[in-house]
Design a protein around this nucleic acid. Sequence first.
DNA 1: ATCCCTGCAAAGGGTTTGCAGACGC
DNA 2: GCGTCTGCAAACCCTTTGCAGGGAT
Lengths: 160, 160
Amino acid sequence: MNEETREAVNRILTDYLEAKKHRKTSERFAILNEIYAHDGHFDIEQLYLMMKNKKYRVSRATLYNNIEILVDAGLVIRHQFGKNLAQFEKAYKYKQHDHLICTDCEKVFEFCDPRIQQIQKSTEEMLKFKVIHHSLNFFAKCTELHEKGMCPNKKNYHDI
Amino acid sequence: MNEETREAVNRILTDYLEAKKHRKTSERFAILNEIYAHDGHFDIEQLYLMMKNKKYRVSRATLYNNIEILVDAGLVIRHQFGKNLAQFEKAYKYKQHDHLICTDCEKVFEFCDPRIQQIQKSTEEMLKFKVIHHSLNFFAKCTELHEKGMCPNKKNYHDI
DNA sequence: ATCCCTGCAAAGGGTTTGCAGACGC
DNA sequence: GCGTCTGCAAACCCTTTGCAGGGAT
């Protein structure tokens, strides 16, 4: 991660902790920096192992506690890709995007479509709500691989 | 539920089970009919209790096993509203819709926007996937209740 | 010095699994 | 009768909680 981003997210976390009158512990900043040192999605166990293999040693409980703070501070996004396992992703300066999940191999792809903003606006007006965030997931089959039988894991009824 | 729907979904399940060479057990049809006798979202525990209080007695294990079959058969939709608790909903003949979840009180509202189909089409073309289903959730605050302080559960940092 | 935060381990809650008996085929 | 499906309970996995010690304020 570049230095500029590092400073920015640390600044954001500092401001957040001060505003909420939470303590600025070294663990909190270590977790934030570990998260921003990697790309892609991760779950708590992966984050735990990544940090365990380094100079930082944090407990799972601390990770669970603080990931919530980071989500609330807007620095991390939580995903629930249909499994009972929360996945996370850094949020700062990353272009808003949504996900397509392969129903065969569970790989996750990203895409971006500005029209989701229009849907959001209409929905806000219709239901009289202010949307904080959204999650749009497409569950799909790779047509190419599927035809070639290269993504052969599960076969759904509707394929027959 | 009306008789027509009842017959249709039982027919669909029968065809599905025959196509997949699965047995047509009474539990499978009892579960299907129990689900179609109610509106709204439910989780496995609710379904279990509903059936326990009636003539049918099924185990949770059977519910977990068979809800998957019903989902695969296209008769039930699975939702994951951000919690580690799967929720379900009947799917036959119900207009496709998406959900807005109140981040204060967790109430779920439904809405319908055809533009999601256009996004889906574009995404399919761009990523070369065939979308089987999607899930779009807006997490939002009720502006009215929120201003009146009538939905006061959680306060996020970004409200400050 | 206060008391919030951490680490550890145990508990919790939803889901899955193993196995013996039941029943669809 | 064979082999799958069911019911029960235990196991499982991710997450939360309780508690004693440590560190931020």
